[in-house]
Design a protein around this nucleic acid. Sequence first.
RNA 1: GAGACUGUAGCUCAGUUGGUUUAGAGCAUUACCUUGACAGGGUAGGGGUCGGGGGUUCGAAUCCCUCCAGUCUCACCA
Length: 938
Amino acid sequence: MKLATRYNAQETEAKWYPHWMDKKYFASTPDDREAFAIVIPPPNVTGILHMGHMLNNTIQDILIRKARLDGKNACWVPGTDHASIATEAKVVRKLRAEGIKKGDLTREEFLKHAWDWTDEYGGKILTQLRKLGASCDWDRTAFTMDEVRSKQVIKIFVDLFNKGKLYRGLRMVNWDPEAQTVLSNEEVIYGDEDSLLYHLRYKIDHNGQESPTLVRLEKKIKKLQRLLAQGKRKTYGSGTYQRSVIAGLRRMLADAQRTYAAESEAYNWLTIATKRPETIMGDTAIAVHPDDPRYAHLKGKRAIVPLIGRAVPIIFDDYVDMEFGTGALKVTPAHDPNDYEIGLRHNLEVIDTINDDGTMNEKAQIHIGTDRFEARELVKKDLETAGFLVAIEPYTSSIGRSERTGAVVEPKLSLQWYVDMKKIADPALKAVMSDEVEFFPKKYKNTYRHWMENIRDWCISRQLWWGHRIPAWYYEEETFVAETAEEALALAKAKLGDQITLADLQQDEDVLDTWFSSWLWPFSVFDGLEEGGEVDYYYPTSVLVTGWDIIFLWVARMIMSGYEWKGTLPFQHVYFTGMVRDKQGRKMSKSLGNSPDALKLIEDYGADGVRFGVMSSSPAGGDLLFDKKLCEQGAAFCNKMWNALRLIKGWEIAESPVSEDLAKVNALAAKWLAQSLSKTLEEIDKNFQEYRLSEVTMDLYNFIWGDFFSWYLEIIKPPYGSPIDRKTYNQAIDFFEQLMTVLHPIMPFVTEEIWHQLKDRKEGEDCIVSQFPKAGKIDEKLLKQFDVIKDTITKIREIRQKNSLKSYEPLKAFIQEGTSAQQFFSIEGTKELLQKMAALESLDFTSKEPTNSVNFIAGTEQFYVEINKTIDVEAERARLDKELDYLEGFLNSVNKKLGNERFVNNAPAKVVENERKKQQDATAKIAILKESLAKLGT
RNA sequence: GAGACUGUAGCUCAGUUGGUUUAGAGCAUUACCUUGACAGGGUAGGGGUCGGGGGUUCGAAUCCCUCCAGUCUCACCA
């Protein structure tokens, strides 16, 4: 069969994924084998595949495929998240485009639309994951709002309530005016933004009481004015004298007026600073610090809110920072958490002036119906016109925005459901701190601890329809929490009497936070509240792979729920991936347009190419600077492997050894490659354990391309037109086969294809279910020997290059006689291999330097290469000088160490020994080099 | 304000508990080779006083202190 000159990714992917599905290789059911389970971080049901998913899911697939090859029962559970806010927003937008307002629909009608939408677009992302090669057990596909999951969510809510770990409370919440729902603290993203600080003055209400100072000043002014008037009419002595008297009076009058103005300002006005002038209509106090001398006289006084004229008390509270602004603070308990706290302390009225959609309501009295930001401008203008605006200064402050809609969060007083987190956090904190649940990388333990130790209650109700409706029923002041309405009714009857009917009970209108269902994911996907089911086999799962950005939103809560309901950890390891950024380090985002189309990438570079690209640049926990070039490299790697296959498949095979020499060469090469492979497998194994997958990828890339292709295949490659012996051929095929299995987790498609091309396979034999090779015993001596061989070949090539000799021009080479040279050649095949790879006509021992030759040192051996042309003495001298320089410097540093008595006495014997060996080798080499230089003449 | 992390080649990063040549890889770059698997190839090279300064040690990219630069998390002052 003739193979195409290029690897065709599309064809291969279209061929093998369905095959794997047909064979049900991804499916898992409990059996005797060790379980290896991963639950997917469920993407939004209506989401599309982006780079973050690619990274995340490639990693999971690698781990799952590796576990499968290791003979474990690998189970990767896929699924999607109903993404309450995001999905509802999408549906609302779609309906609006069709001219339908959410408000005009009943809950049931809206949900019908939402389900239609979900059915139409939902799970698209899972289809896209298949393109990436994700080997999920698709039969297990779960959805956070499907029947099984929903039932568990409701049960959990009821259970928490019954345990007293859930409550409903009136609190200051984060309100998203765009989505029109409350958010948890974790769903608010804070960032510094440029804004303005407005200085506003409030009139102080003195109840008609006059300031004695002002009265006195007023009198003084009047008197001065009188005197001045008189002075103008009268004449005092000389004209000069009169003029000076009048000037004096004028000065005094001006002074008095200035003082009066200042005093009047201080007496009648109080200036505050605020970022939000539009909230002044909700002011119910002005607060100053109790120790602030500037305001001590205002005790018991009231201030008049500008524009609306409400009189509010001036209160004294430690919370106020005297240094900030004017030291006076307007208190708006309805629209600021701190103000709310102050309000509680001072029994202040709460006047909520903002509607749920962020517009001003009738309590604001003015600008009713305008948006809060528009209102800010309008109020500013009003204040300016009416003379209440003192100053505006630029001000940078942290603004909280909704994670989903980006809307500026409005603090708002509201009645919501909360989970009492302090009651469930403890085991989860301990588990991570003791590494029972192990984080990779470890640094996230700190972040986790800090959050867990300062954990705040979790607001779980959302004013949405798309989600799990809260199973709480109300009857007047009573609350009944139960899994069904009937059960709630039974509770109500028990408490209030039999006259209560279902119609009397009112179910809570709200739904639960999306994360309230996803925090159960590690066991809910196995229907884990039921005892004795599959959950016992798969739970705790092996590893969770997710971005560090949802460590609180999701990871921490899963750990808590795991301990709360399963009594144990949900997963053993957590692998935190970094964020995908572009080459310039910017976060990938739609608005920047720097996020590549994931599917397009797969089309262009193949799934394997993209997987390689994503993996070769993603150290665990570090951010991933994505560059398409890496995918190109991956695609090139596929092509390289493909062509190596073509090379081998193109060889003619001889059943018996073709020559004794070549047999030796090939045997040595095979021995060495096996050793090198073992060493690489050891590395890979170690790196897998530490989740250093980019290292694994690079290890393999280097081994396959370098050791296997560039060295091994070049060594065993038969001369053009000659056949290869059967034994070597089979060995090469076997090596290639093993390598395909090792690489399979990272690049599943190309490896499966090549694996099949290498040998005739029986039904049910596939790379995906083959066996991951284990490292054999490593012969360091052989590896070292081969390093010297490689070094020798490289140096001869260099000599050719420096002397403009063709790579295939036969050369005569010699090695300096001696015991170590004997030893070097005693490893069978060494000489023959060198001859073949360095294109040497001969390689013999010699006791003296041959004429017209250049020399070099490899390992501890001195080699000579005879050159059939005039040696470029200068170039040769330069080469030797350079090497001599290096060695002398090196020897110098070694000597320094060995000359240091304290080093010799204190360092471990092994280290000293090693230094001595270095010293000997270097000294010997230097001697040789010097001799060679001497021979070159001066 | 509290805490965490990072700084190594032009770029992205390794360097695994301080000692296997005077620091490695990939990409980029330079020179040369290339009709016989692969131009998405081959061969060879250039390139770093490991952010600065101090200290501990026989020995520091690695440990400690300090400064500089940058990133992030949490909490927040109107």
